[in-house]
Structure formats: C-alpha cells, structure tokens
Write a protein that binds this DNA or RNA. Structure first.
Ligand code: FES
Ligand code: FES
Lengths: 144, 144
DNA sequence: TTATAAAAAGATACGTAAGTCTTTTTATAT
DNA sequence: ATATAAAAAGACTTACGTATCTTTTTATAA
C-alpha cells in the first residue's frame, strides 16, 4: 500500500528513536544497515524528513539523527503525509477525480470504510509506540 | 491504493458489461471516452485483460470488447491480481521481506486486519455488482 | 474482392519513484 | 589550525508505471 520510500522512512525513524533512548545518535549508514535499506537513498530520505521537521540532525564528528522532543509522539500519518502527500487518504478507490459521498462511485460504500480504517490506524500508531513494541520484543525491526 | 492502470481496467470492464447488457460491444475508443481515460493506453490495458482471459474481443468491423460468459462474475481481485500481481495483498505494511504472523513487524497486529478487510472486499465485489449499482443509478461511472 | 472498421502489436516517449556517486558543508577532536 | 567524521547537496542513473504513435492483422459490409 505504501511506497518503499515511506517504509524506509518509518523503519529508520523507529530505529533512531530506539537508539536515542539508549543515548545514541545513529548516522544514516548505521541506520541503513540495521533496517536493511539502501545506504545513500536512506540518507536522502532522512534529509527530507529533517527538512520536514520530523527528525533532527547534527553534522560533523559525533553527529547523526535524533528527535528533538522524544516525548512528542509522531504519528505514522505525519510521515506518510510528508512523503506521499496530503491527498493520500482522500482519493476515490475507483479512480474518479474526487471521492464524494453524495455522488459516490460504485465502490465507495465498501472502499471508504477500508480506507478510513487505514487512515485511523496510521493516526493512532506512532514511531514511539512501534519502537516500544520492538523493545518489549513483541515485534521485529527487520528480517535479515 | 491501486494503480491508475488497475482503476482504468475496472472502470473499463464495468462499462463493457453495462453495454453488453444492452447488446453492444464497445471499442476501446468509446470506452476511454466514457470512463475518462487515455484512449490508446486503455486499448493496451484491455489487450492485457484479453490475454488474461478476463474479457474477450473481436477484431474487424463490428468488433469490440465483450464478456463470453456474462453470468460468470469477475471479482475485483481477479483484475487486481492480473495487473498488480499475486503478491499485492500479502505484503508487510512495514516493508519487511515477508509478512509473518509468528514473527510480526510492529505494525502487523494493526495493519493486517486493514489489509485483509480490503482483500475481503475485493473478493466480494464483482464487475457485475458494480455495474448493477450504476444501472440502478445508485452510483456513477465517471465524473466529467 | 475490395474498402472499411476494428483490435493487436511494436516502437517509442514521458514522468516519477528508487537508487548511486561525488563534492561540499559543518561540527568535533586532536 | 588541522584532520576527521558526519550530514547536506547536487548531478546522475535506473526501473517502472503511464502514455502515445505507427503499423499490422483480422473480420465484416458493400
Ligand atoms: S467516490 Fe469512489 S471511493 Fe468515494
Ligand atoms: S509482518 Fe508486517 S504486516 Fe505482517
């Protein structure tokens, strides 16, 4: 459903958060290794997330990526929005120009609930909550 | 969620079915006009659907597209599978190589139900059922 | 049997997502 | 100050989804 870029972004942010808890600020090479993503491209994705103020970075020796306010949770939607665009959860599943409940396509009544439950989910889940699951060993960050 | 190609395919098939009921076999130019899609590309998409035995076609004067067994319903999944590939509803929402309930990613418990409800939906909905809604004027085929 | 109308086929182009390579900037440690 | 280590930036590729144009094949009507 989501693009690879968005998947890398979410996995990278989760890893950064986990490391931050331990007092570390990982660099993109380490991140890429740990989440199993292409190194340079991960750097580009993180550059974009930094510009979007979703994560912070420090250049130079000892630099890396970190969250300025780790307590302030970041929803997955915020990440999806930054990468896939604002319209992602508003589109018609049948491909019409707009989704319109008052003049629906023949898929609307069945598609809209699915789309909206996905939207709800990504608004509830946060980078922090995913990281927490991994730290509790209830889930895995990668599959190497 | 679905690619444009798949959306064109579904809309085209619905239109073909509606016209078939009226005893017509539309050509791709007429279809493209009615579903608001690029003409030649729609021809290519229908060519693929014909090869996949989802719809039939006749060349030559009086030719066009039609369903061989209009009573045999075609699920949306069958169309999605033909265009997006068999793996579409099996992928991990977090981007891991495989989705595995027994070794889940941190999104699995929340993502899998959404993905599976989408899967269920496209297995229940058929070209025929969508066409029926349009014929009852409960839904629209396009937004011109 | 010839003209016509239609899909099929093949070649090509465009646009965006995904990915790589090289250089520049910046912070830190020595 | 200088060397070093890190992200940022820019140019470039590659892959794929989307789209167009032209030619070929095939069925029908006249
Ligand atoms: S109008 Fe198509 S999904 Fe709402
Ligand atoms: S393991 Fe990620 S969705 Fe199932």
């Amino acid at each position: 459903m989501l693009g690879k870029t968005t998947e890398y972004a979410i996995r990278a942010l989760v890893y950064i958060y986990i490391q931050n808890i331990k007092g570390e600020r990982p660099g993109f090479k380490e991140i890429a290794k740990m989440i199993d993503s292409p190194e340079q491209f991960t750097g580009k994705v993180l550059q974009n997330l930094t510009r979007a103020n979703i994560v912070s970075s420090m250049k130079g020796r000892g630099g890396g990526f970190f969250f300025n306010e780790p307590a302030n949770p970041i929803t997955l939607f915020k990440v999806i929005e930054a990468i896939e665009g604002k319209e992602y959860f508003l589109k018609c599943g049948f491909g019409l120009k707009r989704c319109d409940t008052n003049n629906p396509c023949p898929l609307h009544d069945d598609y809209a609930p699915v789309r909206d439950s996905f939207f709800k989910m990504v608004n509830e889940k946060t980078i922090q909550s995913l990281a927490y699951k991994i730290n509790k060993h209830e889930a895995t960050l990668n599959r190497l």
